[in-house]
Write a protein that binds this DNA or RNA. Structure first.
Lengths: 244, 244
DNA sequence: CCAAAAGTGTTGCTACTACACCCATGC
DNA sequence: GCATGGGTGTAGTAGCAACACTTTTGG
């Protein structure tokens, strides 16, 4: 006979039962070379030794979930300022063969250049290109390094897939895309980011105007340098014009 | 010095540390009398004795999160078929004064008539009208019974607010709204549901055509009965015409 | 001048809104 | 007939996609 919810909430003694471990896992995303990419860690020990996993850590008793995610993020260099958002909580019974671990997944968006320092400092890190089929039903993602698929640990393929899906759903109407670019950027660079996330080519003039009409962009007077053709204007993300 | 994520994932012994309790809390939503409503439980014991809380329960070691949510839902009568979706995970350190409890919030959508049986069977249940300001920044919700505000326990005001926000964001493009109606319904009833969730009046002809053009509705030949004016046609939700 | 990419003007489509109007039913 | 709400026809508008076009740079 199931207990009523009132009994559960008021009469339950949590100390008397086994409790699961709770972890945070981070999808550190960027767009590199025209494709969405995420940072992965090579696991050296079982379970899933030799496979690749999302960076993560267990939640301590004295920190909140967001705090834990920020802490794990802070372990990497140059990533403290990233955009971070809770993604989903994965809690299948057997997702970790050792013990019951419930994982709260977060994703963080970073400009491409933020990964260089972290990769140099730690050889167990890898930058993986994420491939996610455009079919809406499937949520599984795949990770690729150069030409070879990286085998993923735990249910992290699902987490990767969901991160890309969430981003696809938000990038059209929310300014999250700017978190993937440096402070100043060209409209071409912004379009490349959108195309990489959405996985489809976009019409250049339409994209330009859509972005400019939104009022999110502030033209700096400056122009791109180093090109052998007409230099593009650099824009800046104007935080919130009306601020909701 | 912070441990690297590799150390955390591979070298951490979860048995050696304290673990938080993990619960699921359910926002059982419907639209009653032209306003969004949710089912609340009156707490009889501290903490928050006398205040109202979302029905919930601790996650057992041998069940997944979705499974736990379904189990808590199943404690109520006539609610097994509801649409259920994970909402957000709340993990502030002091959200429960007794001990560290991380709560995975779910929301479930039910037709209005599903609440009647549950309310009759259990006197500690109450149906609360949810009020959420339309300002986008704020996420706090309020619960009202008739004319009096119900004081909520824990961070459940925030959970209620987020549930309505999530529904507002989805109802325009996803067929979730049909889960709030019985199997057959009139277009007027569907519009009432949308207006209640969004909190704004909608144009009738525009709404009609928008819904019919989507291809989600299947006309049953039948008509509403009991009205003293022209009876409206009853429609049925056509599951997935193309199925993505 | 040429190549290449930045940036603009114009057209047309689609989705949606607003308003006006007709239709069916019970009293 | 008349009140009431169901249902339809007809503009008008905003956002966006497609295409052709001009502009600006380095070589």
């Amino acid at each position: 006979m199931a207990l009523s919810e009132a009994e559960f909430l008021t009469g339950y003694d949590p100390g008397a039962y086994d409790r699961p471990s709770v972890a945070v896992d981070l999808v550190l995303m960027s767009v590199i070379g025209g494709a969405p990419a995420a940072l992965l860690v090579r696991r050296e020990e079982p379970p899933f030794a030799g496979r690749w996993a999302l960076p993560g850590g267990f939640v301590r008793m004295d920190e909140g979930l967001d705090e834990a995610a920020r802490r794990v993020l802070g372990d990497k260099a140059h990533m403290a300022g990233a955009y971070v958002e809770q993604l989903y909580t994965f809690g299948a019974v057997d997702r970790d063969p050792r013990t019951r671990v419930i994982s709260v997944a977060y994703f963080a968006l970073l400009p491409a250049d933020c990964f260089a320092a972290a990769l140099k400092a730690d050889g167990s890190l890898s930058l993986a290109r994420i491939a996610v089929p455009r079919t809406t039903g499937d949520v599984a993602g795949e990770a690729w390094s150069e030409d070879s698929a990286l085998p993923l640990a735990f249910d992290h393929a699902q987490v990767l897939g969901l991160a890309v899906q969430r981003l696809r759903g938000k990038i059209d109407w929310s300014p999250v895309g700017f978190a993937l670019l440096p402070e100043r950027f060209t409209l071409r660079a912004l379009q490349d980011v959108h195309e990489a996330i959405l996985g489809v080519p976009l019409n250049k003039p339409a994209f330009r105007r859509r972005m400019l009409d939104r009022g999110w962009l502030e033209p700096t007077g400056e122009r791109e340098t180093g090109s052998s053709f007409r230099p593009a204007e650099l824009f800046r993300f104007r935080s919130l014009p009306i601020s909701g």
